[in-house]
């Protein structure tokens, strides 16, 4: 059992959850994730370790409630317990001094990019981050990014905050302004990562994306998380989750992630009354 120390919404449907997990806090490196099972009937879902606190022995998860399990998780409050948390899983981000490194996060992807941005900075890179959201309230971790990055650009799809437009537009602007860019990390929805990959491909900028296939065990035992990279099959949970953006077959990933779409809708509908109550409770209790 893993205790929730603190939990708060930081954007609509996006909750920051701090969990007591001292071993994982000690071991985790940027880019790694945990697999969480909320309760006895629950499924196992992967979530990136966004941050950790060694003294407190805690890890931070930032969770977007898009389906049943993530919403159930987001309904938990400080003092509640999560049944299983296993990790740190996956390979750590490959960090080196590239020169200028741009970390791009779309939506909750910013939370996944954040620890790697920190590590890039610590390795001596000039770090720029571009964080995007649908509108102002969906922009997350701007303050945190500001603390670790040399420059931060915010974009919103509807122009309600920061630069109007997509993160790709901002990246293209930087390139057009002849800014020297040696490395790009892009994490967010698949269409966004695909679009970034297309931009940087033209300029041969080394680009890494973090893939989010459906997982079960997270240890390489089931092969459910397989993706196609460089025409070869990889197991994202052990070979990744980060891969060369220019070699990833995004279309296959997108299709495979739709495997259980009908079940997911069903689950959500069936649970919706229950979860609305729980979410209300969470909102009320902060």
């Amino acid at each position: 059992m893993y205790k929730i120390i603190d939990a708060e919404f930081i954007a609509p449907n996006v909750r920051k959850i701090i969990i007591e997990a001292p071993k994982i806090a000690k071991k985790r490196k940027a880019g790694q994730f945990v697999i969480v099972r909320v309760n006895d009937h629950g499924e196992r879902i992967p979530l990136t370790i966004s941050d950790s606190n060694l003294e407190e022995g805690t890890i931070t998860l930032i969770v977007q409630g898009i389906g049943w399990t993530t919403q159930e998780l987001n309904s938990l409050v400080a003092g509640d317990f999560i049944l299983d948390v296993v990790g740190p899983l996956g390979k750590a981000s490959h960090i080196e001094k590239f020169g200028t490194a741009v970390s791009i996060g779309g939506g909750v992807g910013t939370a996944i990019a954040y620890p790697t941005a920190v590590a890039l900075k610590q390795a001596g890179n000039y770090t720029i981050s571009i964080i995007g959201g649908r509108s102002k309230e969906y922009v997350i971790l701007e303050n945190e990014m500001n603390k670790v990055c040399d420059e931060v650009f915010v974009t919103t799809d509807d122009g309600s905050y920061g630069y109007p437009g997509f993160v790709t537009t901002k990246l293209q602007e930087l390139i057009d302004a002849k800014r020297k860019i040696d490395f790009v990390l892009a994490i967010g929805p698949i269409p966004m990562m695909k679009a970034i990959a297309e931009v940087t491909r033209k300029y041969k900028i080394k680009t890494v994306v973090s893939l989010n296939p459906i997982m079960v065990d997270g240890t390489g035992m089931c092969g459910g998380c397989r993706a196609t990279v460089d025409d070869k099959t990889v197991f994202v949970c052990v070979d990744g989750p980060e891969f060369d953006a220019h070699k990833v077959d995004f279309a296959t990933l997108e299709r495979r992630n739709r495997t259980y779409r009908e079940d997911e809708k069903d689950a959500l509908q069936r649970h919706s009354c229950k979860s609305e109550e729980a979410i209300l409770k969470a909102v009320n209790e902060g």
Binding site: H41, G42, E43, R44, W68, T69, V216, D217, M221, C222, G223, G224, R226, A227, T228, T233, T252, R255, R256, R258, T259, Y260, D263, E264, D266, A267, R270
Partner: peptide, 29 residues
């Protein structure tokens, strides 16, 4: 890598360990 192709480990893990045969009582499909 088409949808619907499983390793036996994944199929059996979903059904046995995660109890997908009792979906939707259990959450794993």
């Amino acid at each position: 890598n088409y949808n619907g192709v499983y390793s036996a480990n994944e199929f059996l893990t979903r059904v046995n360990l995660m109890k997908a045969y009792k979906f939707p009582d259990y959450d794993t499909p």
